[in-house]
Design a protein around this nucleic acid. Structure first.
Lengths: 332, 332
DNA sequence: TTGAAAGCGCTAACAC
DNA sequence: GTGTTAGCGCTTTCAA
């Protein structure tokens, strides 16, 4: 049905291999005459030839595809990360394929990873904590040295890249202290329950250093839950006067909740979010936020995965990228 | 290197085909004994077998992959659409692969489509206006009846799905009229220059019906451009008192610009955006917005593409889905 | 410089 | 019920 290499070869009067070399730009490597080269190219264009992806992939044993697994695209953080990952992958000749887990269960996360493997990805960038569970899949990956890098979570037997929340968090807490806050709150992600939350660790340490009281609330990222938490906080006369919130997205809901509870940000409550996505500048008030080195993280993640793909014995380097505080209007 | 079907067959003492049948769940179709079935399955699990995607794809001539091409993931609209498309595709046994164009040039858009084809997608859902250009690619697609559906743009020779902006826009303008506005503004997308913008057509018609004056400003979706437009509008004493903005994303910037220009929404200016993404509820003020039937559109798009894939002579039905106005706080 | 032929791993007729 | 075998379309070694 479709035009194939043999059609080109036949019509151009050359062998399959000649056609293949020409079309893969390896003509001079095989010292193919300019005349034949041109002829093959012309025929290919004339017949509107498009090589078969699967045939190529099978013959070369390569798909040049890497998977990016994350929760959803409602989170501007993931959107920005995914976009960066795509650009980096593209630049290196790979295609990035997205796999959304929609944050269901660990089992579902693993099932999503399986789906990625079944689709022939050569490596994966993975968000979530599912790979710490004792699953045969996890063992398979470590033992096969499958090219994978875990994001924002540090298992000890798989390579990872993560933000180092401490510097940004220290700056945040210092800012709170400087502006007279003594009771600090933290809205933590429900998704991190059951394992160590690096954001929580960072704020605990930072508060401890300043001898500050810390109150932790728990909320999922999405929808109305941060909003409810905001309302609850607003209703509490004994509430903290400054909050760090797990993500920009959650902060939007949280602030809305505070407002519905009659509180103004930053007048009655200072808020600092985490992620510093492009949304921050456009919200009212503009969000002060702890920024990741997104570019650095994704470049490293993609490069690490590709290094492992291209050299199976490459030793992946796990890395921490420092965060920094960006002050805007949601803090006074 | 990797475990393959023949390994399973050998270890389980069956032929390749038997192994293949069993592993593809077609055991009873071929009346394979329960004993062998179990044995094959056991061996497969024991060896941690994962079929090769490319081999399967080549042998079946199917990749079960459909492409989704759009501008970027900064736009919450595309994020929501892409997510819906993925879910629908998944449900039908297909995988959706995203291709971002980053809104560069028509030529680049087409190059992105080519990239998708090279990756073996069996169909494409396409955003953008590039396919109207006279390109050999366009001809190739129509003549080969390649399964593609164009989103939010209606070429006459390719199937499409789109929102019908008229009902939502009529409601918006009626609301403006009812609340005493006589001079209406529209922030139009720069991306639509050079072809007919259905959003613009809809607002023009709606204003005309009410004998209203319409002022159109042009802005790209992203970054600071809508903000600049907002500032400019705010500085104009002769400005409209109510605006419809091309998208939620642009509206965020636009409103910010108005505010920087000293205007309050909705006190000094009513704003209605288009898209009604989940952001609207969390902005301050909450955005009134013209809502797409996202679910309907994406279900139709995915189903149409799949229908065309599975039955090459299926006649794709192009459809318009009505929009509706959702009133929130950005209008008075 | 070009061509023949052996795979890549799996599916599905077809034969037994 | 199970096995044999001929592709799927391309790459690449090896020979000419």
């Amino acid at each position: 049905m479709s035009v194939k290499l043999s059609d080109i070869a036949a019509k151009a009067n050359v062998s399959l291999s000649t056609a293949s070399w020409v079309l893969n730009g390896r003509a001079d490597e095989f010292r193919i005459s300019e005349a034949t080269r041109k002829r093959v190219l012309a025929v290919s264009r004339e017949l509107d030839y498009r090589p078969s992806f699967s045939a190529k992939a099978l013959a070369k044993g390569r798909t040049y595809t890497i998977g990016f697994q994350c929760g959803n695209l409602e989170s501007p953080y993931f959107c920005e990360m995914a976009t960066l990952a795509m650009q980096h992958a593209e630049r290196r000749g790979y295609h990035l394929t997205l796999q959304l887990t929609l944050w269901k269960t660990f089992a579902n996360d693993l099932e999503c990873l399986e789906a990625l493997l079944r689709r022939g990805v050569e490596g994966v960038i993975f968000s979530g904590a599912a790979l710490n569970a004792d699953s045969p899949l996890h063992d398979y990956l470590v033992q096969k040295r499958f090219p994978i890098v875990q994001m924002n979570f540090q298992p000890n037997d798989l390579p990872w890249v993560s933000s180092d929340y401490q510097p940004g968090m220290d700056q945040a807490i210092e800012h709170f202290v400087k502006t007279g806050h003594t009771k600090i709150g933290f809205v933590k992600s429900k998704g991190t329950i059951g394992y160590i939350d690096p954001k929580e660790q960072a704020i605990e340490l930072a508060c401890q250093r300043h001898g500050l009281e810390l109150r932790t609330c728990i909320s999922s990222i999405e929808h109305d839950e941060p909003l409810r938490v905001g309302k609850t906080v607003a209703a509490d006369p004994d509430r903290p006067t400054a909050f760090v919130v797990q993500s920009d997205q959650a902060a939007m809901g949280f602030i809305r909740g505070l407002r519905e509870g009659g509180l103004d940000v930053p007048r009655d409550m200072s808020v600092i979010s985490i992620d510093d996505t492009h949304l921050c500048k456009y919200l009212q008030p503009q969000l002060s936020s702890i920024a990741h080195d997104k570019e650095g993280i994704m470049a490293h993640a993609v490069n690490t995965v590709i290094a492992m793909i291209e050299d199976k014995k490459a030793l992946p380097e796990s890395r921490l990228f420092p965060t920094t505080l960006v002050l805007r209007e949601s803090t006074r």
